[in-house]
Design a protein around this nucleic acid. Sequence first.
DNA 1: CAGAATCCTGCCTGATACTG
DNA 2: CAGTATCAGGCAGGATTCTG
Lengths: 132, 132
Amino acid sequence: MSIPNNSHLDVPTLSQSFEAKNCPIRDVLDCIGDKWSTLIITTLRERPHRFGELRRTIPDISQRMLTQTLRDLQRDGLISRHVEPTRPPSVEYRLTPLGQSLLTPLTALIHWADNYHEAIRIARSSFDLEAI
Amino acid sequence: MSIPNNSHLDVPTLSQSFEAKNCPIRDVLDCIGDKWSTLIITTLRERPHRFGELRRTIPDISQRMLTQTLRDLQRDGLISRHVEPTRPPSVEYRLTPLGQSLLTPLTALIHWADNYHEAIRIARSSFDLEAI
DNA sequence: CAGAATCCTGCCTGATACTG
DNA sequence: CAGTATCAGGCAGGATTCTG
């Protein structure tokens, strides 16, 4: 094959899709574009976690934000919530099949992040230097 | 091969990486987690665009947000800015090599978005219904 | 045409206290 | 343990006006 195959970069029907009403990109960004969602999803990829475990794994999340983000993810169908009727109650959060399917593109993005976040920091420093 | 190969889901050294100071995921989310960055990058993947073109392509972005997001992306090294000294001036924005390298994981995410945003909407509706 | 400068607002987020 | 409720602050983002 002499012509490089870039079909993996094809984006379906981009035009018109940008209107806020029916833009998949915006939909997904509403799900995982916030400060905590990807960290939670990434944590749950290993195994189900309980509320307190998640708190300890993500050091600086407030309890309010953890509660709220978990419910948003549940609403979007990405995670599910399972209550064990013990005393005191124990609640477990898991990725749904939909949430697991998100792991593939999300992991690709994390790998990119891991490879290039240093390049980004360098770019920032150099940009800020020129600004002086 | 009888054992399914999930190595593409491997995430390097997740523990400790969540501390805000040195977390690549947070770094990248700071770049593209906002409302407009991915739309701009996706637009520039086709070809360089001028300021006004970008405005028309992304219908509801304000001029202030376009200016600001473009500069942030430039600061992060994802796009570059080229001025033609004409009257009136014409300014063109392009993806840098770093920005282009982001296209691969980003496009994977967009494909996922395209495939599943309907599932997300259904999940939301059903969640909201149960809440009544 | 491609911005800069201001003003203003919502809501995202954190901190704190309370509950089953 | 796993939440809710309430209060308060800051910043993202929009609308408008002005410039080289």
